[in-house]
């Protein structure tokens, strides 16, 4: 075990990690930041997506020591300090883009990365970008709508009544 230091959501943190300790494990177990979820062991599901130096990364594919000195952003740092949801989080609530919530941290972090590189994606572009994020609850329909809405595009209101 050796010490690793990084910045997580703007806060300097450190902890001991083995060479084999994954960034996802370091966040969850060492730092106690359990917002980042682990849904598989083959880097398929994307529940563990965080940002490392501004890039979306599956935190189960990276060793904690590889993130030494990096700026890491997780789901815990997405809302404003007073708790106000950011526009992507708010759109997920407004458009019912989550059910059980387990894939949600990764979905929100992937959506943020998408909108940073493509501020007005088409629906097909959203669906393609989410290739690496599996959701078992929503059928993606409302996740796609939430991300389109968060990008400022017109999306029909939820639930035709």
């Amino acid at each position: 075990m050796t010490e690793v230091k990084m910045t997580v959501n703007g806060r300097a943190v450190s902890g001991d990690a083995e060479g084999r300790t994954l960034l996802s494990t370091f966040l969850r177990e060492t730092l106690g930041m359990t917002g980042t979820h682990v849904g598989c062991d083959t880097s398929q599901c994307g529940a563990c997506v965080v940002h490392v130096n501004g890039n979306a990364v599956k935190s189960c594919t990276m060793f904690a020591h590889e993130a030494a000195g990096a700026e890491v952003a997780t789901i815990e740092g997405q809302a404003a300090p007073d708790g106000t949801l950011n526009k992507i989080q708010q759109a997920f609530q407004d458009y019912h883009g989550l059910q059980c919530g387990f894939c949600t941290p990764g979905m929100v972090m992937s959506a943020a990365a998408l909108l940073k590189e493509n501020p007005q994606p088409t629906e097909a572009e959203v669906r393609d970008y989410l290739e690496g994020n599996i959701c078992r609850c929503t059928g993606y329909h409302n996740i796609v709508r939430a991300i389109m809405a968060a990008s400022g595009q017109e999306v029909p209101a939820v639930a035709a009544e």
Partner: peptide, 10 residues
Amino acid sequence: EDVRFLTGTG
């Protein structure tokens, strides 16, 4: 329930 799930506090 969304607020806790969207902020990593579930």
